[in-house]
Design a protein around this nucleic acid. Structure first.
Lengths: 147, 147
DNA sequence: ATCAAATCGGACACGAATGTCCGAATTGAG
DNA sequence: CTCAATTCGGACATTCGTGTCCGATTTGAT
């Protein structure tokens, strides 16, 4: 469904958002150990999301990642998913046909439309802010994280 | 969403079903050229579906693949999808957590449940028989098939 | 000014899904 | 019986997403 990079991206952003109130940015080391994903890999994904304008990074001592205040309650899972797995999810044909469209529909094109829209809407409606401390705690429970 | 093997499996089964009325089984060569997937690869996928009891194969001259009459109007996309991508679709956590469950839900476990069920129901409700000649023709249109 | 702490970026390594090859086994036609 | 047509099965090759390494760059503290 979602690629690992995308899954890790979501977990990382949740982790960064969780620490948004602190004055200090969160370092890669902290994020990666919290979500149990290798540091270098986490780094790559966060770099990509920074470039996409999702959050900011700061080099040097006391540097790290942080989310701007104006974006804090705007960010949804879709922002992340769209950046990393977007093209495939939005436009990919269920059966993998190259040019599946309203003009040249695959056998289940029309039926699948609403399913795909459900999924996208689900991501669009899930704001990082809405994920409460309680909902998020399983993410950082070492016994259950990672695949 | 679906693996290529799964997508090819669906296309192949649609192709075999389309020829079900003929007395003669359909050969791998015929199927693979129709759906524009390499012969050896198609073969591997169809072997797997035969083992899963979805259809039958017959070796030797005039051999090939065919669907038993008693199954012709029973087969759904879910039979195929479940066999090839099933575990992941049915039980996989959106965020990739190892043990995401009602007991240890990930941050979006409960919200995602109905999305996943929608998808499964869509496959369950799509019978091979329901895919009419007209719906299916784009599948075999060389200009638009394959990825 | 220097140095340590951090991100950045590119090249490389690994692993799993995808795809290929070829010989073995089976079957029916002649 | 023999042979050609076909599926079967295992080993191999390729590709691509995943993950690693390391040096370059930036930044702030002292």
């Amino acid at each position: 469904m979602l690629s690992k990079s995308c899954q890790h991206g979501i977990k990382a952003m949740i982790c960064i958002k969780k620490n948004a109130q602190k004055s200090k940015p969160v370092s890669i080391g902290e994020v990666s150990s919290k979500i149990n994903v290798p540091e270098a890999y986490t780094s790559k994904i966060l770099q990509r999301l920074v470039k996409a304008g999702m959050h900011k990074s700061k080099k040097g001592v006391n540097g790290g990642f942080y989310i701007e205040n104006r974006l804090l309650d705007k960010l949804t899972l879709w922002h992340i998913v769209n950046e990393i797995d977007g093209v495939n999810l939005k436009y990919g044909c269920v059966l993998g046909l190259d040019d599946c469209s309203n003009q040249h529909p695959c056998p289940v094109h029309n039926e699948y439309k609403s399913i795909r829209q459900n999924l996208i809407t689900f991501f669009e409606n899930t704001y990082l802010t809405d994920l409460t401390e309680n909902m998020v705690k399983s993410l950082f429970d070492k016994a259950y994280v990672n695949k």
